[in-house]
């Protein structure tokens, strides 16, 4: 694949104020402001912004974008692209490959004159019953996230975290366990994990969680008996599991619940002080992002001599891969955050 005249991806992938721009293809990947042509990795609000003229993404990502922002704002032209199918945009060969982050999440692979770059978007390597698993693609530059790029972040198996939750429900059968989980991805994953662990009772949802759960079901991810928490009796909620946005679990909304045990499903819960400062009684370390080991293993697996880090703790990841001879570059893309980090929010804020 390598020729001596193969261009370095730096020559054709540029960081512009609107985001990462593929010059010979004339498109942006996950631009932060409305553009003419956008390829979208996944539907989280910091990656999928409204108002682009032409949007290319997986069918699931486009479906979720339409639910979140409305049909019109999800792109004037919406082009669904199946995983693995190669398409030529301008002079660039482009395809999508599963990223394992949330339903529909994709890596964007781009090839120009024998030089290949892969933009991972957000990703994880742990199995997730609600989405297709990450598939590594060998490349010259791997563009990675670094949300949890510190060696203190090692996510335990999610099944063990769900077992902790169920053990607590058994110990406090008269209390409501309210689980804070981001509305897109985390919420459905927690539900699916609960179902796999044998929890077949109704799961109650905050209003903000309902539309995306319905959309997941429509897209073929069964979630079982889901009911609105808002209209349920306090008595029905004793011993029940309720899922709500992280911003609502320790605030006024939760007062309707029966002596709630406040739980939060997030990779940040690995750090006790984080749990304590947010008033979380039962932290559940369940994350949709790669942890320290997964980030490093993925860099090795794709075999790229160079990584570009979009956002997160880039300094630690770059420091670590340098020890193995991999060059690292911090893109410092502004506007990407972390949906797991969301602060007290009304409804479904990012």
């Amino acid at each position: 694949m390598k020729h001596f005249d193969t261009p370095h991806p730096e020559a054709w992938l540029r960081v512009l104020p609107d985001g990462l721009f593929c010059e010979p293809g004339g498109f942006y990947v996950d631009p932060v402001r409305p553009v003419d042509r956008a390829v979208i990795t996944h539907a989280h609000a910091d990656h999928a912004r409204p108002g682009h003229a032409h949007v290319l993404a997986s069918a699931e990502t486009l479906a979720i974008m339409r639910v979140r922002m409305g049909v019109d704002r999800a792109g004037t032209v919406q082009q669904e692209q199946p995983y693995g199918q190669v398409l030529t945009i301008g002079e660039v060969r482009v395809w999508l490959q599963p990223a394992g982050h949330v339903l529909g999440a994709a890596q964007v692979a781009m090839e120009w004159r024998g030089s290949r770059a892969v933009v991972s978007g957000d990703y994880k390597r742990a199995p997730d019953p609600t989405c297709a698993p990450f598939e590594p693609i060998p490349c010259d530059v791997f563009v990675t996230e670094a949300t949890f790029a510190l060696p203190v972040f090692r996510h335990p198996p999610p099944e063990a975290e769900i077992a902790k939750l169920l053990a607590s429900v058994a110990l406090f059968p008269e209390r409501t366990h309210v689980v804070g989980a981001y509305a897109l991805g985390k919420c459905q994953r927690v539900i699916a994990l609960l179902r796999r662990a044998g929890w077949d009772r109704p799961i109650y949802l905050h209003g903000a969680q309902m539309p995306l759960c319905a959309e997941y079901e429509r897209l073929g991810v069964p979630l079982g008996d889901l009911r609105p928490a808002t209209v349920a009796n306090k008595a029905d909620l004793a011993g029940a599991i309720v899922i709500a946005p992280p911003g609502a679990i320790a605030d006024r909304w939760a007062r309707r619940l029966a002596e709630p045990v406040v739980c939060l499903a997030s990779g940040w819960m690995r750090v006790r002080q984080r749990a304590r400062s947010r008033g979380v009684e039962l932290p559940l370390v369940i994350s949709d992002h790669a942890d320290w080991d997964e980030l490093n293993a993925t860099v090795d697996e794709v075999g790229a001599p160079e990584i570009w880090v979009t956002h997160g703790r880039e300094e630690a990841l770059i420091h670590e891969v340098a020890k193995r001879g991999v060059r690292g570059r911090a893109l410092r893309l502004l506007g990407y955050g972390d949906e797991e980090e969301d602060l007290p929010a009304q409804g479904e804020a990012a």
Partner: peptide
Amino acid sequence: RTDPTLFAWSYDYVGDLADTVALM
């Protein structure tokens, strides 16, 4: 056992010595 740079960043982030070592 650990890389001093990564340890320093981690300790700075976590804030508690025992917790940092337990986690990393």
